[in-house]
Each structure stands twice: as structure tokens, then as C-alpha cells.
Simulated assay, not measured.
Amino acid sequence: MTRIVAGAAGGRRLRVPPGDTTRPTSDRVREALFSALEAAGAVDGARVLDLYAGSGALGLEAASRGAREVVLVEAARAAAQTARANAGALDMPGVRVEHERAERFLASPRAAGGGGWDLVLVDPPYAVDEDALARVLSALEPLLAEGATVVVERSARSPEPRWPAGWPGARQRRYGETSVWTVRR
């Protein structure tokens, strides 16, 4: 069972996409991640972009904890439909779902609107290789607000993402088989 951990929708269950097309972030990892993000002041009132959203659990967690706008971007049709259903069931204003590949969304005018993203959650399938992830991170560069936070979740066996030149060093946390890297710009 996947659920919203805390905030306005805390405890509410989320549907997961059928089959094995996604890898939901565990409640434990989301709880630890969002505790750290909230302590850093990165969630409340933020514009949040959730790339490779799957069920939408990460972005919806941010919405539950006070983000003012959340965009869930998901390429897989069944997962995008599930994310849309979850967002609708939670009835949170300011949440929308984009059924599109992350790279294509980032290149679209819709990605640039609103003055920059304050928090970006990047949780690609493990099959997304390091080169593709590096291209996504580079495409984010002009879309970030001043002081933005970027979070990348990967397998603990994956190398550190290749951050664009000039980004500060990332802080890594490991939770079993999951590694989470956080960079504050």
C-alpha cells in the first residue's frame, strides 16, 4: 500500500499503476526525504516539478505538505492515468498531470511558465541510463528558481548523477536499495 505520509492528505491511500512499469518510492524514503526538505524550507509554498512521476506519490506528498503548485510528468499512459486519478481523489488545487516524456516536457513552453521551479523531484526508472539522466538535469538548468532544490532518486548501485557544471556538491542519503541525492542551487 502506498499512502500520503503527512500534511493535509496524510494517511490517504494512493493507487499504483498496474503491472511493473513503475517503482514506487517507499513510505519510509518519502518520509525521510520530505522531513529533510521541510526542515530546509523547500516545500511550503513551492512550485514543484515531479519528473517520472509514476503514481504521483512524490509530487502529491509535496502538495499535501503545502506546495502551491505541483506538476506531475509521466510518459507511461497507465501511470499518468493513475497519477491523474490520485490527484483527483485527493482534490488538491494546484496539481496537474502532464502525460509526456520528461525530456519533451522540459523543452516545451509549459515547463518554463511561472517563474522557475523551486523543487524538482527526479525519480526515473532504473532503466534510464546515466547519459539520459544527465541530459534531463542539464535541461532543468534554465528552468530553476533562485535557490531551487533538485532531488534525484536512483538505485543504491547507481553512480552519482552527472550534475551540470557549476552545480554545488550533492548530499547523498542511502535507504536500503535506494539512494537519494539532493542539490540546493
Rank of each mutant, 00 (worst) to 15 (best):
A170M: 08
Q81F: 06
A156K: 00
V136I: 15
A145V: 14
A76M: 07
Y175C: 04
F105E: 03
W167Y: 14
S155L: 01
A78Q: 12
G113K: 14
L143H: 04
V95Y: 09
S158M: 02
T149I: 02
V97P: 02
S108H: 04
V73P: 02
W167D: 10
P159S: 12
P125F: 03
T82K: 07
R77S: 06
R162T: 12
L90F: 11
E160V: 08
S158H: 03
E74L: 06
H99Q: 15
E160P: 02
T149Q: 01
R135K: 15
W117F: 05
D91M: 10
D123W: 03
P161T: 11
V136F: 10
G116H: 07
A148G: 02
Y126M: 07
D129L: 09
V128F: 09
E74P: 04
W163Y: 08
E130H: 12
V150R: 00
R77C: 04
P125K: 09
A107Y: 05
M92D: 08
T149N: 01
A89M: 14
A75V: 01
D129N: 14
R84L: 14
G88S: 13
V73G: 01
A148Y: 06
F105H: 08
E100P: 01
D123E: 09
A89T: 15
G176S: 10
A132D: 15
P142I: 11
S155P: 08
A111S: 06
D123L: 05
R96H: 13
Y126R: 12
T149S: 05
D91E: 15
E74M: 09
L144A: 11
R104A: 14
P168F: 04
A148E: 01
P161M: 06
D91N: 14
A156E: 01
P109G: 01
E74W: 05
L121K: 04
V128I: 15
R173Q: 12
L90E: 05
L90D: 07
E103N: 10
A87K: 06
E100I: 10
V95Q: 12
G166N: 08
L119D: 03
V152A: 02
R173W: 05
R157Q: 10
A80D: 02
R174P: 00
S138P: 03
G88N: 13
L137P: 03
E146M: 03
R84F: 06
L106E: 00
E98T: 11
W163S: 09
W167M: 13
R154M: 00
V150C: 00
R154E: 00
V95A: 14
E100R: 15
A134T: 11
G115F: 11
A145L: 11
A89Q: 15
T82M: 09
D131C: 07
S138M: 06
A145H: 10
E74A: 02
G166D: 07
V122C: 08
A112N: 07
E141Y: 05
P93Y: 10
G116M: 03
V151W: 00
L140I: 07
L133R: 09
N86A: 13
S108T: 02
E98H: 13
P164Y: 05
R101K: 14
P93I: 07
N86V: 10
V151R: 00
A134F: 11
P142V: 14
W167V: 10
R77M: 03
A112R: 15
R135W: 06
E160N: 05
V152I: 01
A139I: 03
